[in-house]
């Protein structure tokens, strides 16, 4: 069970959180202006890297807030967690 640092509450066990998929994907402001290809990118395509991954978590059984995290999918170790709206941290090059 991972330990995850909620930027609002501190370190908590994974069971308190819900995973929210890839981070930093903005819903198009005018979806109706999107062609099918563009809409498909928003709707379906997600980064699936073997390495650093920016992702969303929600402290659903805590403060209930969404936040972002950078985690290495090779080790499951977190580089950082940060609040929504804050810039993503610099990711190590490896």
């Amino acid at each position: 069970m991972l330990i995850i640092r909620c930027p609002y509450c501190g370190e908590r066990p994974e069971l308190e959180f819900a995973y929210g998929g890839q981070a930093h994907i903005a819903r198009p402001l005018q979806p109706s202006d999107q062609n099918d290809e563009d809409w498909n990118v928003y709707l379906n395509l997600r980064a699936n890297p073997k390495g650093w991954h920016s992702e969303r978590w929600r402290h659903i059984h805590g403060c209930a807030r969404f936040f972002n995290a950078v985690r290495d999918t090779r080790t499951d170790h977190f580089l950082a967690t940060y609040k929504m709206g804050e810039p993503a941290p610099e990711v190590p090059s490896t």
């Binding site: 929210g20 903005a26 819903r27 969303r56 929600r58 209930a64 807030r65 969404f66 929504m84 709206g85």
Partner: peptide
Amino acid sequence: EDYLQTEWP
């Protein structure tokens, strides 16, 4: 909550 917190803050 997802839309409210992350798309339409």
